[in-house]
Amino acid sequence: MFKRTSSVKTISVTDVSIGSVFEIGDSCHVKPRSKALAVQREYELFFGDEGNFEAFPIFTKPIPKPIIDEYVNFKKYNESSFIQVNNIDVISCSASGVLHIGSTKTIDAESRVKHIRQLQEDSDKNGKRNDSLSSE
């Protein structure tokens, strides 16, 4: 891996959260992970046993990786071995995001989110209000 030196005069980062990485310096492999269940309900109702990721296949299915079998021939010329930046201002880095100043060999980021919307049913066949929750 060709080494270059990164020089940043100032950096301001407000928030790094949910499996994200803020790396200053060189690294070989970065592998951030994030899992989230996002449940939206019409009114507040909480059960103590919610949040079982294994109940949803999206969290256990393997993500297919592309097979790259073509050769790319290119030449690059770096006039300088320095990367110079005056100012970086970041509001947020979230959900397996990577903010990296330096060199790295590989980054393998993964974020999995299951959105569930639970709405009240309007009424039953007799026109009476039904306040039970239904899940999509």
Results as ranks from 00 to 15, higher is better:
F2C: 15
F2Q: 12
F2Y: 15
K3M: 04
K3D: 11
R4N: 07
T5R: 15
S6N: 10
S6I: 03
S7G: 03
K9W: 05
K9S: 08
K9N: 07
T10Y: 13
I11Y: 08
V13K: 06
V13I: 10
V13F: 12
T14C: 14
D15K: 13
D15F: 05
V16P: 00
I18P: 04
G19Q: 02
G19C: 03
S20T: 02
F22H: 01
I24A: 01
I24M: 06
G25D: 00
D26H: 00
D26Q: 00
S27A: 15
H29G: 09
V30E: 13
K31M: 15
P32A: 01
R33W: 06
R33G: 14
S34H: 09
K35D: 04
K35I: 03
A36Q: 13
A38E: 08
A38G: 01
Q40E: 11
R41C: 07
R41T: 11
Y43G: 13
E44F: 12
E50F: 09
N52K: 05
E54G: 06
A55Y: 10
I58H: 11
I58W: 07
T60Y: 01
T60Q: 10
T60E: 14
K61W: 01
I63D: 03
K65V: 11
P66E: 05
P66G: 09
D69T: 15
D69F: 05
D69V: 13
D69S: 15
E70S: 12
E70C: 10
E70G: 09
V72F: 05
N73R: 01
N73W: 07
S81L: 10
S81H: 10
F82A: 12
F82K: 08
I83C: 08
Q84Y: 15
Q84A: 15
Q84C: 14
N87M: 10
N87I: 06
D89V: 13
D89I: 14
D89M: 15
V90P: 00
S92I: 03
A95P: 04
S96M: 01
V98N: 01
L99M: 03
H100D: 10
H100V: 00
H100W: 02
I101M: 09
I101F: 10
G102E: 02
T106V: 08
T106W: 03
T106P: 01
D108F: 05
A109L: 02
E110N: 09
S111K: 01
R112M: 03
I116K: 07
R117Y: 13
Q118R: 15
L119P: 06
Q120I: 11
Q120L: 10
E121Q: 08
K125D: 08
N126K: 08
N126C: 06
G127I: 00
G127R: 00
K128N: 14
R129P: 00
R129D: 08
N130K: 06
N130W: 06
D131R: 12
L133E: 03
L133I: 04
L133H: 06
S135A: 04
E136H: 05
E136K: 03
